[in-house]
Design a protein around this nucleic acid. Structure first.
Length: 490
RNA sequence: GGGCCAUUAGCUCAACUGGUAGAGCAUCCGACUCUUAAUCGGACGGUUUAGGGUUCGAGUCCCUGAUGGCCCA
């Protein structure tokens, strides 16, 4: 059946060529977009002799033929405009070409605007040409394209059939622009650091591994931009940021895609409290810029992102949500028992800090409607963060939560090279115990610290998750144009 | 990786406890010079995700695979 449609359209293609048209056209200068015609309709109208000619192009999204005349809806990036074609107002080949039109064809029209009896702004065509003949049929016009698999595999069809999808990606683009401008306004310099490296560090994650043929060497795709950006702070970039693609070799879920976009920024002579300040200002500013208000609604929950956001220590948060205090966790072995008693899957050699993190992840984080900063994390979970001066088992670190999800992670950067080397060694021990996500040793980075990293605050924001919040999307794939999918098998 | 669910015409969806696979849109033919989910008349369209099994009979029940979704790890 689909083949019948395609062959019927190919026959029309041949007929268009016989009529002297080029069904895959060239440059078509437009004078207006659909939106501009609607906006300036009154100026475009006037005494019959002086009515200006306009030229528009777009896709035919509805077709209403009436024998010796017809209407169609022309859709471009800005919206829709109805076009009217009359046999007695165009030359015969043009009307013939119009009668060979199909839904989905890309066409260019020139003519004058008028308003129909029913009050719709309409272009009466004087010329009509096909700029790209559509050989395949579009999805159904009322219900759009629903099949999730097809929506992701053929995102262009999703974008044509479901206008709200386009809006999501417009918001994404605009929010990215706003954040860049905000950071430039704060004096940050944007840089690009390598995707490939001979090791992948800066986060707890498994990397993708590939091979460079010419150098015959194993290369890893980055799992964070952190270690390169801090090298730049050593080199004198005092406010630096990168918006970049990150790759983590882990499962796919509504909140995980193997490649995703992260904003990381570093500010010399600052600490994690400065990062809280910039986080709440950046996010509320971005929401206001793209949504018109710092108040967002995500999956039915309304949240006001106006600063300041409350700050709650991780330990205090656990106490409020479970009644458990740090003293109840005891030593590592006791903590594991407490965690297991609460139904958590605790690995054999877990420490008290790891159990604390698991408990908070299970019983606290999902309930943090926020916005809220959860502050002061256990040392062993944060091998790149600076210890708290008054409590060396914890570090100056926070995660920001909105609607039960983490939107930012930041800390005062560890700048003591000896402490950093020891933390890497501890991570290697973790890896030896079977934790595949533990950090690797990065001697070159420690070497950089030995040249002096100023006290620095660092921040990471997972932009896809932020865009999910801003567009009220329940699934990360809804904010990624081409999410990773398995290939279709024959 | 585990559990549950889904997959029917190009698209969106029906089909009761196993009993002749349907509709709307799209497509094709015809009518129609202000329609807009255009309308009216007619026609075409299916290896029911793939393979196997049970049965007189399978879209429906069972097994295996594919792809996707949700939940969990």
């Amino acid at each position: 059946m689909e083949q019948d449609v395609i062959s019927a359209r190919r026959e029309k293609l041949d007929k268009l060529r016989e009529l002297g048209f080029r069904p895959f056209g060239h440059r078509f200068p437009r004078t207006h977009t659909c939106q501009e015609v609607h906006a300036s309709f009154d100026q475009l109208q006037g005494p019959p002799a002086a009515v200006p000619q306009v030229a528009l192009a777009g896709r035919i999204m509805a077709l209403r033929s009436h024998g010796k005349a017809g209407f169609f809806d022309l859709v471009d990036q800005t919206g829709k405009l109805q076009v009217y074609v009359r046999q007695d107002r165009v030359d015969p080949q043009t009307f013939e070409a119009f009668s060979l039109s199909d839904l989905g064809d890309i066409v260019g029209v020139r003519g004058v605007v008028f308003r129909t009896r029913t009050g719709e702004d309409t272009l009466e065509a004087q010329t009509f040409e096909v700029l790209a003949k559509a050989l395949r049929p579009l999805p159904e016009k009322w219900h759009g394209l629903r099949d999730v698999d097809t929506r992701y595999r053929q995102r262009y069809l999703d974008l044509i059939a479901n206008p709200e999808v386009r809006r999501v990606f417009d918001v994404r683009s605009e929010a990215t622009r706003v954040m860049r401008e905000f950071l430039h306004g704060e004096g940050f310099t944007e840089v690009e650091t390598p995707v490939f490296g001979s090791l992948a560090g800066g986060a707890n994650a498994r990397p993708f591994v590939t091979h460079h043929n010419a150098q015959d060497m194993t290369v890893y795709l980055r799992i964070a931009t952190e270690l390169h950006l801090k090298r730049l702070v050593v080199g004198g970039f005092e406010k630096v940021f990168e918006i970049g693609r990150i790759f983590r070799n882990e499962g796919i879920s509504t909140r995980h895609n193997p490649e995703f976009t992260m904003l990381e920024l570093y500010q010399a002579y600052a600490d994690y409290t400065d990062m809280m300040d910039i986080t709440e200002r950046l996010i509320s500013h971005t929401a206001t810029a793209v949504l018109g208000s710092p108040r967002i609604t995500y999956q039915g929950t309304s949240v006001d992102l106006t600063p300041p956001w409350p700050r709650l220590s991780m330990v205090e948060a656990l106490r409020r949500h479970t009644g458990l205090g740090l003293e109840d966790l005891g030593d590592d072995a006791q903590a594991c028992e407490v965690g297991r008693a609460r139904g958590l899957d605790i690995p054999p050699h877990a420490t008290r800090g790891m159990v604390l993190d698991k408990l908070v992840g299970e019983f606290v984080e999902p309930h943090l409607v926020g916005p809220v900063f959860l502050v002061d994390y256990p040392l062993e979970l944060s091998p790149l963060a600076k210890r708290k001066p008054d409590n060396p088992e914890f570090v100056e670190r926070f995660e920001a939560f909105v609607c039960g999800g983490e939107v930012a992670n930041a800390f005062s950067e560890l700048n003591d090279p000896d402490d950093q080397r020891q933390r890497f060694l501890d991570q290697l021990a973790e890896k030896a115990k079977g934790n595949e996500e533990a950090h690797v040793m990065d001697d070159d980075y420690v070497n950089a610290l030995e040249h002096g990293l100023p006290p620095t605050g660092g921040l990471g924001i997972g932009l896809d998750r932020l865009f999910m919040l801003l567009t009220d999307s329940p699934c990360i794939r809804d904010v990624i144009l081409f999410p990773l999918l398995r290939p279709l098998k024959e």
